[in-house]
């Protein structure tokens, strides 16, 4: 464990908690893609299949449970909470994410570290996390609604990606056998997609602020 990865995990967790608290406090999920949140929950559920079989550390196990619980809590809120679900942009959040799930699974069957049940699902979760932001990006382009996507959410999400890339660079230079190509290449693609999301986010922010001022 290095400080970059620890900080990356913390900023990732904070970004999820910020979104969950924002939805719960405002009882609204307008502008938030349920499909992206469902993909995130699927990412954690398929990545942490080793929760009960491989013990890395108490921190690792606790964080896995927290990530699974918080991402499922967001999905539950958006699907089941009587007030929140009414504000869901159902007719705008129409990205066909099932094709993305299928494509990632096929890729995981072809490209993985070892052909075992857990490893294929681990690779699947890595690929899926990279593209999970797409429904949210499309919804943002369509709705331009940034009410619930606070600046802090975007800031911590960006910090998570940046810190993880620094973590990989650090591990590459300090550990002799560090070669997590699947995670690194997929993580770089994910960061590029996040940069695109941040670009549209700030465009929407500026547009919304301009309208507010007029």
């Amino acid at each position: 464990m290095n400080i970059f990865r620890f900080a990356g995990d913390m900023t990732h967790l904070i970004s999820i908690l910020i979104l969950l608290l924002k939805i719960y406090a405002t009882k609204s999920c307008a502008g938030i893609s349920l499909k992206t949140q469902e993909l995130y929950a699927l990412v954690f559920l398929t990545r942490y299949l080793d929760l009960f079989t491989d013990y890395v550390s108490l921190y690792n196990s606790v964080m896995k449970i927290v990530f699974i619980a918080s991402s499922l809590a967001i999905v539950w809120c958006m699907r089941r909470h009587p007030l929140v679900r009414r504000s869901y942009d159902k007719d705008l959040d129409t990205f066909r994410h099932q094709y993305v799930v299928l494509a990632c699974f096929v890729l995981a069957l072809v490209l993985h570290e070892r052909f075992t049940f857990q490893e294929v699902f681990w690779a699947f979760s890595i690929y899926l996390e990279a593209v999970a932001i797409l429904p949210q990006l499309v919804l943002l382009q369509r709705s331009g609604n940034v009410d619930n996507l606070t600046g802090q959410y975007v800031l911590f999400l960006g910090a998570y990606r940046g810190l993880y890339i620094i973590n990989w660079i650090y591990r590459y230079f300090t550990e002799d056998h560090f070669a997590r190509w699947i995670a690194c290449v997929s993580g770089l693609i994910q960061t590029a997609l996040y940069a695109d999301f941040f670009y549209y986010y700030y465009l929407s922010r500026i547009k919304q602020d301009t309208i507010m001022r007029l």
Binding site: R5, D9, H12, N60, M63, K64, E113, R114, H177
Partner: peptide, 10 residues
């Protein structure tokens, strides 16, 4: 070795 195969990153 076995530890190498376990994914230690979240």
């Amino acid at each position: 070795d076995e530890t190498e195969n376990v994914h230690d990153e979240l």
